Simulated assay, not measured.
Amino acid sequence: MEQRRWDDDERFTGVGDASAMRPAVQDLAAVMARDGWVTEDPDAHLLPHLRAVPGWRVVAERLVEGGVYEVAAHPDEPLEGIEAHRAAIRLLAAIAEPSFFVRQCGPDTFECVTGVLPGDPPGYATHGHLVRLVITP
């Protein structure tokens, strides 16, 4: 099994663990488990922001089981590898709230949780969105 973390990694280990930010991640996970935390009507709240991002065209959207807003988007220019990953995050950043998590879960698929935790600015009630972005060829 490959131990390298990137192409020229010779160290094979990092400088520490991620404990410093674990409480914030745990807080996000805790509010995600609250019934009713995912907001309604993503077509009104999210879609206009996604459609306004230069370099992308939203080609389909639908609300699927569990409140996941599935969005298919086509980039104006071909994207591969890390550039596709970074471009997907730039697109999703258009809907980012104080807490924002993105995970690439397939070659062309990204899952995103974004929301407001208790006490986050600008003082809205805690709520969030689940988005699955599928980059179309």
Rank of each mutant, 00 (worst) to 15 (best):
M1R: 14
E2H: 14
R5P: 10
D8A: 14
D9L: 08
G14C: 08
V15D: 14
G16D: 01
G16K: 09
D17R: 13
A18C: 03
V25I: 15
A29E: 03
V31K: 00
V31M: 04
A33Q: 09
R34E: 12
D35W: 07
G36A: 01
W37F: 09
T39R: 11
T39Y: 02
E40Y: 01
D41M: 02
D41A: 08
D43Q: 02
A44Q: 02
H45F: 06
H45K: 06
R51Y: 07
R51V: 14
V53I: 14
V53C: 03
G55F: 11
R57M: 09
E61T: 15
R62L: 01
L63F: 03
E65I: 07
Y69Q: 00
A72L: 12
A73W: 07
I82D: 14
E83Y: 08
A88W: 12
A88N: 03
I95S: 03
E97W: 10
F100S: 01
F101I: 14
P107H: 11
P107G: 08
D108T: 15
D108K: 15
E111Q: 10
C112P: 02
L117N: 09
Y124H: 11
Y124D: 13
A125W: 08
H127A: 05
V131H: 00
R132G: 07
L133D: 04
V134W: 13
I135P: 05
T136D: 13
